[in-house]
């Protein structure tokens, strides 16, 4: 009881103390976010309406950059490639991560080690990833095609050397890299499902598949939503892997939006135009994410 009294009496002082201490703890972070996220974000927004290359002086041009964007064939190609990548990367990573989580959610010896091993690709340096997979996908000397030929495939794809197969090769590589990370999230989700559900279902005579469809998947809905949103944001932002693995080639077959921003902005010095592309990319990501949230809320409500 005395404790409660102390609490009420000291509240005004403690409120001030909370404010002061709270802000002093958070201040370095806040300054950082302001300087390196907020300010660049506002700057990018403003730059999109300017005509500014590395030589000239900035000039206000209104929506000109966006008009140029709509007519730019590179933008169309990059948008199509980004959507293709997302359409492959999002579902495949999700399925691979869920599969890994389910097979590694068993009481077998050394399962923790296996989990860590499945996480290794996520830790692997990007350049190493690109080097390894480019060699694996090598049309003649690579093990993938050697195995395919041994299995009787007469004319295996030329992967990163072909305009049709380069993007699928990139997708296979990126699924490999990311699945371990999302596996951990799914493993966490699996822990929240009460064991009694499974026991009751088994007593009722439900098979493994039935248990999966009627217990595991519905119970994992919150995790799946979180994974889906993270994967979507990540897929539309993809850049590093493509730069080191194919550099957008062969031709423009793996050129993505983020890479176009980089090319126009940093390499060509077209600060205004590249910011317009960045803004378009940001709007796309935001729209997709908002739609996902809406959809999730409606499903939860029903």
């Amino acid at each position: 009881m005395t404790h409660a009294v102390t609490r009420t009496r000291s509240r005004p002082r403690s409120a001030w103390r909370d404010i002061l201490i709270g802000w002093s703890f958070i201040l370095p972070n806040f300054v950082g976010f302001a300087l390196f996220t907020l300010v660049p974000m506002l700057a990018a927004f403003a730059l999109a309406f300017l005509d500014w290359d590395s030589y000239g002086t900035p000039e206000w041009v209104g929506l000109d950059n966006f008009g140029r964007l709509l007519a730019d064939e590179n933008f169309h190609v990059a948008l199509r490639n980004t959507l293709f990548y997302a359409a492959g990367h999002i579902p495949l990573t999700l399925v691979a991560a869920l599969t890994l989580a389910i097979v590694l959610n068993r009481k077998i010896r050394g399962v923790q080690l296996f989990r860590t091993a499945a996480f290794f690709p996520y830790v692997t340096s990007l350049v190493a990833v690109a080097v390894v997979w480019n060699m694996l996908f090598n049309p003649t000397a690579g093990p993938i095609n050697q195995v395919l030929e041994a299995l009787g495939v007469a004319d295996p794809p030329r992967w990163v050397a072909s305009t049709d197969w380069a993007m699928p090769a990139v997708i296979v590589t990126s699924v490999w890299r990311d699945m371990g990370y999302y596996m951990v999230l799914y493993l966490a989700g699996l822990q929240t499902i009460p064991k009694e559900y499974y026991e009751a279902a088994t007593v009722d005579g439900a098979g493994a598949w039935q248990r999966f469809w009627s217990i595991t998947l519905p119970s994992l809905r919150p995790t799946t939503f979180f994974v889906l949103v993270m994967l979507t944001i990540q897929s539309f932002k993809v850049l590093d892997l493509i730069v080191v693995m194919t550099d957008g080639g062969p031709g423009r077959s793996t050129l993505v939006l983020a890479q176009l921003v980089y090319r126009e902005g940093i390499i060509e010095g077209q600060f205004g135009y590249s910011s317009a592309i960045a803004l378009a990319l940001f709007v796309i990501v935001l729209t997709v994410t908002v739609v996902q949230f809406r959809f999730n809320e409606r499903r939860r409500a029903s």
Binding site: N29, T37, P40, M41, A43, L47, F236, A258, G265, V285
Partner: peptide, 24 residues
Amino acid sequence: AVFAVVIGAVAVPNTALAVPTFLM
């Protein structure tokens, strides 16, 4: 406000910030 900024920062593509950050 801090929370909103933090969550927003996760969603912003690094590439979108690259040019302004580089200029800064």
